[in-house]
Each structure stands twice: as structure tokens, then as C-alpha cells.
């Protein structure tokens, strides 16, 4: 196979394109701009750390199913870890959102970074709602019957039945986690490609990224 033929292969073109947009030293940088040394910048990574704990504890809960935590102290412990990791996840994500909104973090061609973050937030809220109705207790029954009326008023109840535990659980442990993780990955890649947004008083050209 000639060199020209190799260069025309889609694998070769894709690799060159990816490396050109996101070289390894940009994907995993050793340093960050000086303005990143602020507490307001730690909430994004706090959110991802909490998401990691949510996924791990969720995987452990999946081994014995959604009713495990009712009859096992270990199950109750893991379920509580899952709950409190979610609390930290949303807490950190909201502070991260406020911080980035106050910086107008979509500046400098970062609109896709902002959009992927916003959609991740929406997917996470849906994951939280489906988690509420997957608790397999009276609380989840109450929430599901209340949510049913809300969803039915939109016409969505025909496709998304909150009283169907099987459907809600599958959305909660398969579809929405995949969406949240993929969107988070895209969000981080966009941050790496475009860099962390500089403060208002400093222009990108004045601060090395």
C-alpha cells in the first residue's frame, strides 16, 4: 500500500484531525493559566468526582437490584453513599453553573462548551427524577403518582410512564447515565480544546493557556 493510499484512509485522516485539534499536551496539560487558581474553578472537577462515586455506587447497587437496600445494612450504606454523592453532585454543579454564568463562560467561541454543560445539567435532572421513582418505597410511589399527572398534562405520559418501575429503572441506570457521562466527556473535551475561560479583565491573548 502506497503512502498516499494510507494517508487517504479514514483512520489516518481522523487521527490527524483529532491530534491537530487536541494534541496530547493540550488534552492533559501540566499547567493552567494563573487565574484558574481560585476556589470558583474547583466545582467542575468536584462535580465529576461526585459523578464518579454516583456511578460506582450505582453499579454496586445494580448487583443485587433496587430493593437490596431495604433488607441489607450494606445495601443501605451503599444506597446512602449513592444519595449523598448525588447531593454533592448537584450542589457542586449548581455552584459551577453560577460561577460560569457570572463569567459569561460562553465567550471566545466556547458556546459548545456552555451548551454541552447545560444539556448535561438537564440530563442529570432527569436522572435524578427517575432515581426518585426507583427507590421502591412509599416515597417513590407518592412522587410517581404526582409526576404522572404532570407528565400526562404534557401528553408525554403515553411514552414515558413514571408508574412503570421497569421503564424508570432502565432510564435511570442505562440511558440517562450514558447520556450524562458522554455529555460530560464532550464538555471536558471542549474545555480542553478551547481552554478555561479567562476573567473579564484579562483577554485571552494576555494570558498564556
Amino acid at each position: 500500500m502506497s503512502t498516499t493510499e494510507i494517508e487517504r484512509q479514514w483512520t489516518s485522516r481522523l487521527r490527524k484531525s483529532v491530534v491537530a485539534k487536541l494534541p496530547p499536551d493540550k488534552m492533559l496539560p501540566d499547567t493552567q493559566p494563573a487565574y484558574v487558581a481560585s476556589w470558583i474553578y474547583v466545582f467542575g472537577v468536584t462535580t465529576m468526582a461526585a459523578l464518579f462515586v454516583v456511578i460506582v455506587t450505582g453499579c454496586i447497587l445494580a448487583i443485587d437490584g433496587p430493593v437490596w437496600w431495604h433488607s441489607s445494612s450494606l445495601g443501605h450504606f451503599v444506597n446512602s453513599m449513592h444519595l449523598w454523592a448525588v447531593e454533592i453532585f448537584f450542589f457542586a454543579m449548581v455552584v459551577h453553573l453560577w460561577g460560569k454564568f457570572s463569567m459569561a463562560a460562553w465567550r471566545g467561541g466556547r458556546s459548545l462548551t456552555w451548551v454541552t454543560g447545560a444539556v448535561t445539567f438537564l440530563a442529570s435532572i432527569l436522572a435524578g427524577f427517575t432515581g426518585y421513582v426507583s427507590q421502591t418505597n412509599f416515597d417513590s410511589q407518592w412522587i410517581a403518582t404526582q409526576a404522572k399527572d404532570g407528565i400526562n398534562s404534557t401528553g408525554g405520559g403515553a411514552f414515558f410512564n413514571v408508574l412503570n418501575l421497569g421503564q424508570m429503572l432502565m432510564w435511570h441506570i442505562v440511558l440517562l447515565p450514558i447520556a450524562a457521562v458522554v455529555l460530560t466527556g464532550l464538555h471536558v473535551v471542549m474545555v480542553r480544546i478551547k481552554g478555561v475561560v479567562p476573567p473579564f479583565e484579562e483577554k485571552s491573548s494576555e494570558v498564556s493557556a
Partner: peptide, 8 residues
């Protein structure tokens, strides 16, 4: 937390 993160 937001306010403290901005100024701490």
C-alpha cells in the same frame, strides 16, 4: 459557598 468561592 458561591460567595466564599469568589472571595476566599
Amino acid at each position: 459557598t458561591f460567595v466564599v468561592a469568589l472571595f476566599a
